[in-house]
Structures are given as C-alpha cells and as structure tokens.
Design a protein around this nucleic acid. Structure first.
Length: 652
RNA sequence: GCCGAAGUAGCUCAGCUGGUAGAGCAGCUGAUUUGUAAUCAGCAGGUCGCGGGUUCGAGUCCCAUCUUCGGCUCCA
C-alpha cells in the first residue's frame, strides 16, 4: 500500500501501482470524467500512469492551466494522427501546446495543405476523438528509439533524439499514431469534443530562416462545444477593437499603395492625437530637465560607421542615396545625430546630465512580411531622448526615466504590461553585441538594480539587448495577441567611445559619459496603435480628436448651437455642430459610433434656459447643465488628462 | 525575405460550373423641422489592385507583379 496525500491535507491509502484516474474514480465517477492529468509530487503526469510510491497528488482538470496544457498537447497528437491518415509519409517535428491551443510543425514532402484540408482534418479529428482511443505511454531505450525512427525514415525525430539521454525517453501512441514525446497526455481522445483548426502557416525548422520551411497548423480544442463557441465569439470581439479597423472607422490613419508599404498617412483625427501626445511629452520632458532639438532625416554614411550601427543595422536601413560622391542614409535612429549635438560644444561635469529630446522621424526597412498596421511600420516617429551622464549619475538618471514610464502608464491606465530586462547573449559577443564582456555584466547589474529598487516586477531575457548595451523593454500585447515592445530604456557604453564623447571632470581630466537612450512613449505609430486597442477607440477627452459634438434638434436651433460652439472653441475645445437635417436619434447614433466623448443636445428648452443637454458617449443622457458648468467640468477633465472610468474600458 | 490566403463603389459585402456587375450604409438632390442609437423618396457612384495571356467572350481560368492579411524570421 502507498500513502497518497491530497491538497486538502488528507492522506489515504491505495494499492501500489494504482493510477490517478483510479483514485479519482474511487472518489466519484464524475470527477474521473474530468481528470485530464495529475500532478504527482509537483510533476505533471498522465492520469493513467501507475503510482508506486507515497506521493502528494493534485488532480488536474480543465480548470487548471496544466490541465489545459495537457489537453492541447494531446490535441496536437490527435491532429497529427488525422494528418498522417490524409497525408501518408508526412514527417513531424514538434507539436506543443500554446497559451490558447496548439500547433504541430510538419514536413509534407511534395504535398501541399490547403484551407479546405483543414475542414477535412477537423472532420477526421472528430471521428478519431469519438473513438476514445487511449493515449498509451511506453518507455523505450535510446537505441530502440533511434532504430524505430530510422526505420521510419524520420530524420526530424532522430534529430530530437540526439539531445535526449537514455532512460527518460518515451513514446506515446493513440489509435494508429505513435510519436516521440515526453508527455504527459490526457487519458483518451474522447475528452476532446470541440475542435477548430485555425490556420495554416509556414515556420522555419528550429526557427532559423536558413533552414527548410515546415508547414505549421494551428488549432484549438475544448471539452465542449459551448466553450469553443465562446472562444470564437471572443475572437470576433477582439477583432472589433483591432487598431487597423478602428483606425479606419475613426479616420485616424490610412495607407496608400503609391506612398509605399509601411508608410503611414496620419489623417486629421490621428494628427490631433499625435499633437496631444507630443504636448504631454514636451511638458514632461521640460519638467525632467530635457532640452529639445531638431535633426535632419538623413546623414552621411560615415556617421553610421562611427556609431557602429552599419554592421549591425544595414539590413534594416533603406539603401543609401548617392550625392556628390557621398552616400547618404535615411536615419533609422536619432542617437548619432544627438551625439553630434552633444559634441558640438565642450562639456564639463557641470553640464551633466545633458538630456536631449526629440520626436525623431526614423526610417527602417523592415522586411515586407513584418509590416503590421501601425504596430510595425517603415517610417516612425520616436519619443526619443538621450541622456549623457557620468557613472555616478547613472543610477539616478536611469531611475528617473523608469519613473517617467510609470507616470505615463498611470495617465493612460496601462496595466497589462511586462517589464523585460533585455540582456546580451555571451555567445554572440562580437556579432550581435559589441565585444565588451565586462562592461556588459557591469551595466546589466546596474539596470537590474534600478528595476529592483523601483519594485516593478520584471523578467530577464538573454539575447534581447541592443548591440551597445542592455535595456528595459516594456512588452504589451495587441488585441489579437501579438507581443510588441511599447517603450524602451537603454544603456549605452559603446557609442560614447566610438564618438569620442567626453566631459571634463572635477579633477580637470577628460572622462567618457554613459548614455541612456529612452523612448517611454515608444513611437507615435505603435503607441497610438496600442491606445486605439487599449481604449477600444474611446479615447479620454484630452486625447479625443473631436471632444464635443453639438446636436441641434432641428435647424431652428442652429444659431443657438453656434453661440455655444463659439464659447467652447474659445476655451480651446475641439467642437463641431451636426447641422444635417436629420432626426436627433440619427445624430446621436452617428456621434456615438464615432466615439465622440460629449454630445450636447440643444433644442427649444435649452435655448430658452441658456442650457445644454449633456450626453456622455457610452453612458447616455446626463441631463441639462449650464454652459459654464459643462465648460468647467470638461476643462478639468482635459487639463488633468483624466482617464475617466469609462475610458479604462480595458475590462473586456 | 520565406510559407499560405485575399484584393469587386468611400465602407461592409454578394456575384453558381467563363456570357459583359449588384445590395446595404455613406454621398448628392428633394420632401420632412424632428427631443436621446438609423425619416422617406429620387439620383449619382465601379477600366472588379495593376500588367500580360487563354478564349468568340474574363470579376470569374492561367502567368507575372503590387498591396494587405495569418504565421515564420525580425522589432520601437
């Protein structure tokens, strides 16, 4: 007999070699039907795997992330079985579970899979699922495994086997399909009751673009149809707040084939937002002791040779244009220009920290397939600044920048983000990262300490640093789930040297400054793309392209509407009158759909009493107010950049 | 750049196996003068992304190209 402890602290005795499934069944048949896997002494196992020692047991169901993970991984195997039946000779690479769903990478040889095939595959998967085939675990020696897959001619699994050590190798089979797999898996395919294969795509083998491209099929499965329906509905809702859709509907931006891919045309409404963001940035930077500068969009090749960007960055820059025997590049970053401004006049320690800010226009030749709405473009406007400081000023300066981030995020109500400490990869020193191993470690430690001091949770990721130093990236997710860096705060110990930047220290000796590159508001493109989705197009009043729309009941009240408009305009409010000959219901509907924060209905009553009927977007009629009262409230909302709880509509 | 898909009126979309383009909304004109999410009628609007080809005939089939989208790679 063995002792099994449960999460509630109870200990019960079971026969040696019992399984979690059997134990669940002993508790209730209903529970047994829900058990997907089990955590045995903290390790996730098949629920059908015999337990031979005393153990603590945690039964995993659909309610546990690990349960879902197992479910989706098993679904990947089910899909592979279906694929193998339709595409004999297919070779599989890996098929992991994702945060939502799963995929499997495969080599179809000469065959091609189409979207119609996905429907057939779904059908086949449903058939196979109904058979309720058991997932069977089998331990195998490395030699036997190699023989098995060599006989099968499966070079991909043989490649995987190379990195596995004898003793822990397992095969899993269900129905007619057998796969090299660590597991664990759900008890049988009958648990999978709702299946949707979402897309078919290419993916480089081992993620390296020099390797062969495999076919990747994405899918998601659920234990019942209802959950699948809800998931599909959720996806549709997410699409409604996609910045590309909202950007078009709200007249924020457009693109044109004749202008070029990834080149954004900001329309009047988008430009209002840009100007409000710049106003915020200027106020904040003035407050933070920054000086503003303006620099040209191009520079000679030599600048980027000095900065060291060319060897690392040439592929991401537009090809140079030649003039007077010189090569000129469109700038992909503002830093070298700022360094030249720093260097234009001699600096003493008294001048430091020297902070230069600019909403700099940069051009980056992103690969065509990487372009994505506003989030990934070829011409971008960066909320850039460079801080030149001494080593002992560094911590304070870096922390001040970090605090600026937090201040901004509070204004925008940004809560769902991750701070990422992006480090170098020692293996790529001299290639992707400048070869200064000690400086890397030293500055990484400095940055880490700032994060710890700030008390913001963060993750560390190797191989994400800039070529010149470590950085803190703020990671966010687009509404359709893509991850982006929204803002960045970087250390640079390389460029000050390459530009021979210096200042005279207290001892009258030349000293090399450190540089902080920072872009808390990222770029206009990505930031506004993010805000569109964050607010679902319902911008807070201070950012809203149109803040107030006056809706006269009929054109008898146009004149009164105009006197109201005049007063609001005088106060600096962005206001328009809907002077169409439409019924008030229609005017309200159209204004609501354009997400204008305030609607002022004016008719007989209002005109006689010199009032306004105020309607708040998404909230309905707020009743009649004096013009002065409305004005006072809205100005307060604008000046203090209030988000208003309705703008924190990130509840969805 | 690579794998895959899609481009039809300003927008959202229909157009079967090739027979010469259609709806709703938006727009314009007229009527209506309207009280908190769509008033009615009429009109106008498209070299079907661009360029070739097959065919008596191409939005529909083929090739090439551009752009966008789903991924991979990459990134603010």
């Amino acid at each position: 007999m063995i002792n099994i402890s449960f999460p509630d602290g109870k200990v019960r005795q079971y026969e040696d070699g019992t399984t979690a499934l059997a134990i669940a069944r002993s508790i209730s048949e209903g529970l047994a039907k829900k058990v997907l896997a089990v955590k045995v002494n903290g390790e996730v196992w098949d629920a059908t795997r015999p337990i031979t020692t005393d153990a603590t047991l945690n039964l995993l169901t659909w309610n546990d992330p690990e349960g879902q993970n197992t479910f989706w991984h098993s679904s990947a195997h089910l899909m592979a079985e279906a694929v193998e039946s339709m595409f004999p000779g297919v070779k599989f690479w890996v098929g992991p579970a994702l945060e939502k769903g799963f995929y499997y990478d495969m080599d179809l040889g000469d065959k091609k899979m189409t979207e119609e095939d996905l429907l057939l595959l779904e059908k086949k998967m449903n058939e196979l699922a109904k058979q309720g085939n058991k997932y069977i675990r089998q331990e195998i020696s490395k030699a036997d495994a190699i023989k098995y897959f060599a006989d099968k001619g499966d070079e991909y699994k043989l490649d995987l086997l190379q990195n596995l050590t004898d003793g822990g190798i397992t095969l899993y089979s269900q129905g007619a399909f057998t796969d090299l797999c660590r597991g664990p898996h759900i008890p049988d395919t009958g648990f999978i009751r709702a299946i949707k294969l979402t897309s078919i795509a290419g993916a480089y083998w081992k993620g390296d673009e020099k390797n062969k491209m495999l076919t990747r099929v994405y899918g998601v499965t659920f234990p019942n149809q209802k959950e699948l329906d809800e998931y599909v509905l959720m996806l549709e809702e997410a699409k409604k707040r996609d910045h590309r859709k909202l950007g078009k509907e709200l007249g924020i931006f457009t693109m044109d084939e004749d202008i070029g891919p990834g080149l954004i045309l900001w329309m009047p409404n988008g430009t209002v937002i840009i100007e409000e963001l710049e106003k915020l940035a200027k106020e904040t930077e003035l407050d933070g002791g920054y000086k503003r500068v303006v620099t040209p969009h191009i520079a000679k090749e030599n600048l980027y040779i000095t900065s060291g960007h060319l060897p690392y960055y040439a592929d991401s820059m537009f090809p140079p244009m030649e003039m007077d025997g010189e090569k000129y590049y469109l700038k992909a970053m503002n830093c070298p220009h700022h360094h030249k401004i720093y260097d234009a006049e001699p600096k003493s320690y008294r001048d430091l920290p020297y902070r230069l800010a600019e909403y700099g226009t940069c051009y980056r030749y992103e690969q065509s397939g990487e372009l994505f709405g506003l989030m990934r473009v070829r011409c971008l406007h960066m909320n850039d600044a460079h801080i030149y400081c001494s080593k002992d000023q560094f911590m304070q300066e870096f922390k001040a920048v970090n605090d600026m981030y937090i201040k901004y995020f509070k204004i925008f109500g940004i809560e769902k983000y991750v701070m990422r400490l992006s480090l170098h990869d020692p293996a790529k020193l001299g290639q992707k990262y400048i070869n200064e191993p000690e400086l890397w470690l030293e500055t990484e430690e400095l940055v880490r300490n700032v994060l710890i001091e700030t008390g913001v949770p963060f993750v560390e990721v190797k191989g994400e640093g800039a070529f010149y130093g470590p950085k803190i990236d703020v990671q966010i997710w687009s509404t359709i789930g893509r991850e982006f860096t929204l803002a960045t705060n970087q250390v640079d110990f390389a460029q000050p040297r390459s530009f021979k930047l210096s200042f005279t220290n207290k001892e009258n000796n030349p000293e090399i400054p450190l540089i902080i590159h920072r872009a808390p508001l990222g770029t206009h493109e990505r930031f506004i793309g993010f805000l569109l989705e964050h607010y679902a197009g319902k911008f807070p009043v201070w950012l809203a392209p149109l803040q107030v729309k006056i809706l006269p009941i009929s054109d008898k009240f146009l004149e009164y509407a105009e006197t109201v408009q005049k007063q609001l305009k005088k106060a600096g409010i962005r206001v328009e009158i809907d002077d169409r000959q439409e019924k008030i219901g229609k005017k309200i509907r159209d204004t609501e759909l354009m997400k204008v924060p305030y609607m002022l209905v004016v008719g007989e009553k209002e005109m006689n009493e010199n009032k306004l009927s105020v309607r708040r977007q998404g909230k309905g009629d707020l009743g009649a107010q004096d013009i002065s009262v409305f004005l006072e409230n809205i100005l307060d909302e604008i000046e203090n950049r209030k988000s208003g709880e309705e703008t924190a509509a990130v509840t969805a």
